[in-house]
């Protein structure tokens, strides 16, 4: 009797399989933050972002860049460090229910990665096209680049690597080695950031007008393909979750 009561109590106190609150708060964080960023671009792009030699450019844009660098390096260090330091050293001995819960948490990370990828690769990248079709660049660090390359790309890199690390440190599925397509889907889009070096070098060298389909941009295209690695991640996850649920769904 006592044991039964204890068991029911444990169930009632048990953490939910999917922490919806965390998921919606996480999504809101990205959306509200990027909404603010877009507001900042709208106001200070036109008023302080047209001439990189002007003092207000330094105030509103270069300082923004420096702050980004510091926050991104700190966030990456703290977040990745935390996930690694708190890793489960007995990951192969967890219960199936705990494994299922961790898969849900892993998917919360993947949902965040999806949101971050959307903003980086779609929203801010195409936005860059219209800005540079409108404003002739006189620096590598234009307002749209400061947001696109040095904010939205690092954010999806931080999120993607965090998701990968979570899977690697807490899920039995990922203990058999390194998931090839998971690495492709995280490291490929990450490589878009180093490719900025080629992009800026080219633009500085040739100072071409903004032809978006110029071959100089094909590095971004190639690494963008790596986003398709998510197909492999989905298949790996479906396999693992099916295994956990198979006999109950039969």
């Amino acid at each position: 009797m006592a044991a039964t009561t204890e068991s029911v109590k444990t169930d009632a106190a048990e953490a939910p399989l999917l922490n919806k609150k965390n998921m919606f708060l996480g999504a809101a964080l990205y959306i509200v933050f990027y909404g603010w960023v877009r507001w900042y671009e709208g106001v200070y792009g036109w008023s302080a972002g047209l001439d990189s030699f002007a003092p207000e450019f330094e105030t509103y844009w270069m300082n923004f860049l420096y702050i980004e660098f510091i926050l991104e390096v700190s966030t990456a260090g703290i977040l990745w460090g935390y996930i690694w330091k708190t890793r489960d050293r007995k990951v192969m001995s967890i219960t199936p229910r705990e494994e299922l819960r961790r898969h849900f948490t892993h998917w919360v990370w993947l949902v965040m990665y999806a949101i971050a990828i959307y903003y980086g690769a779609s929203y801010f990248t195409e936005q860059d096209g219209t800005w540079h079709q409108t404003i002739v660049r006189d620096t590598d660090f234009t307002p749209s680049h400061i947001i696109e390359f040095y904010l939205s790309y690092p954010i999806y890199i931080i999120t993607g690597v965090a998701s990968f690390l979570y899977a690697k440190t807490r899920l039995p599925t990922y203990q058999q080695g390194l998931s090839l397509q998971y690495m492709v889907s995280v490291i490929g889009p990450f490589m878009i950031l180093p490719n900025v070096g080629l992009n800026e070098w080219g633009h500085t060298f040739w100072f071409m007008e903004e032809l978006f389909v110029a071959p100089l941009h094909y590095g971004f295209v190639f690494f963008g393909w790596a986003a398709l690695g998510i197909l492999g991640v989905v298949n790996t996850e479906v396999g693992a979750i099916s295994k956990l649920l198979k006999k109950d769904l039969a």
Binding site: T125, S185, V213, V221, A227
Partner: peptide
């Protein structure tokens, strides 16, 4: 969760590919 993630990750990859080609 899978559909949402797949949709937006594919959106990102497809969009950057298409806009630059």
């Amino acid at each position: 969760l899978i559909l949402f993630t797949l949709f937006f990750v594919v959106l990102g990859g497809y969009h950057i590919h298409y806009m630059l080609t």
